[in-house]
Design a protein around this nucleic acid. Sequence first.
DNA 1: TTGAGTTTGTGAAAGTTTCAACAATATTCA
DNA 2: TGAATATTGTTGAAACTTTCACAAACTCAA
Lengths: 210, 210
Amino acid sequence: MSAKSAETIPDIVIGRLPLYLRALRRLQQDDKQVTSSQELGKRLDISSAQIRKDLSHFGGFGKQGTGYQIEFLIERLQDVLQVNQDWSVVVVGAGNLGIAISHYRGFQDRGFSIADVFDISPEKIGQRIGNYVVQPVGSMAEAIHDKGIKIAMLAVPAEDAQSVADQLVEAGVRAILNYAPININVPDHVQIQYIDPVTHLQRMTYYLEA
Amino acid sequence: MSAKSAETIPDIVIGRLPLYLRALRRLQQDDKQVTSSQELGKRLDISSAQIRKDLSHFGGFGKQGTGYQIEFLIERLQDVLQVNQDWSVVVVGAGNLGIAISHYRGFQDRGFSIADVFDISPEKIGQRIGNYVVQPVGSMAEAIHDKGIKIAMLAVPAEDAQSVADQLVEAGVRAILNYAPININVPDHVQIQYIDPVTHLQRMTYYLEA
DNA sequence: TTGAGTTTGTGAAAGTTTCAACAATATTCA
DNA sequence: TGAATATTGTTGAAACTTTCACAAACTCAA
């Protein structure tokens, strides 16, 4: 019943909230008004008890006998995750991957806008990618500082990832989504997440019959 | 000391093996011969005890007082994950994302080769993407069957993802890496993994100061 | 050869996460 | 209205995961 804002919420719970949010928005698109932990759980392949417990960390969002008002729950989750605002993000690296990221339409309506795209290579600089013009890495720190940017997506070669990450942190970035297939060390006050499709593929091949 | 091949290895352990493998290959590129659980742990931000325990599930790969022979450990992990062979993979969806995936050079030397790229839209079919020519989805099942393909990467719009996944499973695919921002239901004998950068970003914004 | 210094593999303890079950409350419909 | 049905939030137990701590085994230098 009560919001337990004093305690620390387990990170694993936080990690599921974006999945709930994504599923809820889809239900909303299908013109549904109300859902239940059971329905949501079925879609997400997560137990209904888990979903109720996760949500209960933030207060009583549901109604016994009825379930959850989708619109209301979406708003609450957006508040919790702080995606009820728009975050400006920079992309570093304008190779194939950086270009694909910069073209991706899916960030906008989920809380993120790409502000600038940077690259180190002279032949990339000045190149147009959609609405962006590739900027030199040399001007990155200033742009991040001036625009108060806190989030970066890193799409540079693995060899350069640590050094670029260091520069980003130095410039004030507090969250990095790293697409380079290498681990990066950042200070405790900086968030880091990884995207490496090959690790997912390798995790699956373990279970395949040869 | 002993390989406990009879018991089931926790999936969470399997999920870390690709990270170990990735870090080891990087150490190898730096011409290192030997490493320790401590060194690896420092790079990966995982405790050394965790790494030793994970590896011990598969047998004693290390030597007391010395550590792990990098080349040997890489081979063992590749065996365990079944990436000591090359897996043929199909890409479905030839939009921005599918094109970026098809161009990505990073699959090849980690155990995966793209065999074919499919799309449903007539204006995409026949289009060249690097070494591939986009094939119609109509011919997908036959190609998958004939080539014995077990793995697919899904880069279609969210609306189409479930239906395409169903077709893939029907055609014999046993592992799907889904880039569409939606949950998909597959039978128990089919592996599924997700890539949705926005969920990672939203997980990080929770921790940022507004 | 001996002793100091490493590092593994592992059993037991501590910590974390999931799940089952149920009282409380709401809805529906006869 | 009242019985049948649905669904939440929560408790406590079960399951799972990580960490601790140490004997055993190896290296190296004196």
